[in-house]
């Protein structure tokens, strides 16, 4: 496993008016590792990944990507740099075919004279191939995404991000709405992607899912990192305790209207 961090987030702070959503979060992610970011609701997970993917600008702190300090002004910058985010929803269009979804925004072009056409043959071939590698046998590349299960949709989204050159893949609770079988498929996909050398940031609040694929675990609580543990250094019970430890406080803060 390569130990060079591809992304370092140093003391990231993010304030929304008087609300401090992130009060100094630091993690680093290596190429080819799956770094799990755990935390209960309101811990600041969403805000943190939005900062990482260029949606929010950090109030303070540094983002270092491949050794260079980065200053993302919008998500397009982050995508161009190679940081792709797969959202739980808002990733696929159910009415469109798998191959149309796969190449959405990156359509392959075939020129015929001065006319430029969507290269369906290429798109279908690549989509079928990529899906087979991910363990999904499509009825056909023109199958609508709507007919895929939730886990398969996540897999398509992940495969798409990797195909288009993502070096860092942020997965926002990819397993939270899935059943057991589907979850195991998504976790298997994460494992495959990691082996291809992609850095995976896996956001979840399910300790078992995190332990299944994670190399390192960072727990977020009330906008702060409680620490990072290596695989094998920590038991599920300890992780669970770390996450739940701030439960009462988080609830209290929630009732005061102060959470993110």
């Amino acid at each position: 496993m390569c130990a060079r961090p591809i992304v370092q987030m140093k003391n990231i702070e993010k304030h929304f008016g008087s609300v401090i959503a992130l009060a100094g979060v630091s993690i680093d992610v290596n190429a080819g590792e799956c770094h799990c970011l755990l935390g209960d609701n309101g811990a600041g997970k969403s805000t943190f990944i939005k900062t990482m993917s260029g949606v929010h600008k950090p109030t303070a702190g540094e983002i270092i990507f491949e050794g260079q300090p980065m200053d993302f002004t919008d998500p397009r910058d982050a995508i161009a740099a190679g940081i792709a985010t797969v959202h739980q929803h808002l990733a696929m269009i159910p009415l469109m075919s798998v191959s149309r979804n796969f190449f959405m925004g990156n359509e392959p072009i075939k020129t015929l004279g001065f006319l430029r056409f969507f290269d369906h043959d290429y798109a279908n071939r690549v989509t079928t191939e990529e899906m087979r590698q991910m363990g999904i046998n499509l009825r056909g590349p023109d199958q609508a995404v709507g007919t895929l299960s939730g886990g398969e949709r996540q897999t398509v989204a992940i495969a798409r991000a990797v195909h288009f050159g993502a070096k860092v893949l942020i997965l926002d609770e990819p397993t939270s709405a899935l059943g057991v079988r589907q979850t195991s498929n998504v976790l298997a996909t994460i494992d495959k992607v990691r082996k291809q050398g992609v850095a995976v940031v896996f956001i979840t609040h399910n300790v078992r899912h995190a332990l299944a694929v994670g190399d390192r675990f960072t727990v977020l609580n009330r906008g702060k990192t409680l620490g990072t543990a290596e695989r094998g250094e920590i038991t599920p019970e300890e992780l669970q305790d770390l996450m739940a430890g701030g439960q009462e406080l988080a609830e209290l803060e929630g009732s005061l209207g102060g959470t993110v």
């Binding site: 991910m134 195991s184 498929n185």
Partner: peptide, 10 residues
């Protein structure tokens, strides 16, 4: 978990 079950679409 590292080994993918060969997902069968059917």
């Amino acid at each position: 978990m590292s080994d993918t079950p060969q997902t069968v679409a059917d």
